[in-house]
Design a binder for these strands. Sequence first.
DNA 1: CAGAGATTGGACCTGCAAGTCCAGAGTCCT
DNA 2: AGGACTCTGGACTTGCAGGTCCAATCTCTG
Lengths: 193, 193
Amino acid sequence: MTGITAKGLATRERIIEGAAATIRELGVPEATLDAIRARTATSKSQLFHYFPGGRQELLLAVAHHEADRVLSDQQPHLSALTTWDDWQRWRTAVVRRYRRQGRTCPLAVLMTELGRSDPAAQEVTRSLFIRWRRELAAGVAAMQGTTATLDPDRYAGAIIATVQGGVSLLLATGSTRELEDGLDLMLEPLRRG
Amino acid sequence: MTGITAKGLATRERIIEGAAATIRELGVPEATLDAIRARTATSKSQLFHYFPGGRQELLLAVAHHEADRVLSDQQPHLSALTTWDDWQRWRTAVVRRYRRQGRTCPLAVLMTELGRSDPAAQEVTRSLFIRWRRELAAGVAAMQGTTATLDPDRYAGAIIATVQGGVSLLLATGSTRELEDGLDLMLEPLRRG
DNA sequence: CAGAGATTGGACCTGCAAGTCCAGAGTCCT
DNA sequence: AGGACTCTGGACTTGCAGGTCCAATCTCTG
């Protein structure tokens, strides 16, 4: 007796997608419930029916949605980083993904808005970071073989930092140059085995 | 006839400082004019007297203020990066500064709020990035001497990306580990001359 | 088909935050 | 001193966004 039909679930999904799109377009402060309502063709009561916690809960659901996209957009490369060519393909996919996303980072925007007040929101990024690092660390370990000079976990964390920073600069400057240069430099030790 | 006295200027400064503190404490959305008023012991009319553009203009002034702090907090190290020891001291200063700042980045928070709508706000980060990169590039060039294998400008951009990303992860995880590991790896080529 | 519960529409309420205004106090200059 | 300004206090207006509510409709189940 979950009390939710397929139709209801579809509506709920539609709201999340629409809210995500609205946020990408207008930013969190301008993404009012009315704006989301207009885009998703829903009524006030629907919004509060599926997200009883109101705007806060909806934004959190969108944050989850966007966090999942971060990793899935890096697939299938992210889960198969065993050769230098694999790493190069992953690098290319990451750069392309963020170049397309352009000067808007829905997740960052959501976190700066929610993260302060809502512990559940902090958990979203924390979890994203951990899953991401696990995948990269596996790839690092595979490359290093037995002669492990660098702790894969820490190296993976540093790689993620570089991606994050590159994206930040993309937001500020509109260019992916720093992201690309940063990644190339950061991955150099891997190339040399 | 600028029409502003020393007293007025002091008030204006007080408002900016107080607004910056309020934002660090509560975040941009919660930093209402009333909250700023309370902290700075000012009246509505003062806020609009010194910032006719209202809240938007005040936030922009705070962004300028915070952007300047980013670089001044790295001094005097930032402007004297000629030896490996200099770079190490700079690295330490950066890590300490952001560890102290903790899980709040007033500038990032301001930019995600203002950057979308206000071109003047984008110019703040753009200018910060350019000044920052110029200083670091000078340091890189000094280290490389005549045998320049890496373009100092691009290398500097990559270093900034790593700092930015490390700070992002600090905000997400509360740890400076990724910032430190990232910087160590990114600066490694400099150590080897 | 009948009823229970899920789903929907949209009017309504409420609080709050930005911004306006004007009168009064302070200050500078000659 | 006196006039012209800057500066300040705080009441007021306004708009709007979040949230509530109830009645109507749909959709499953038996």
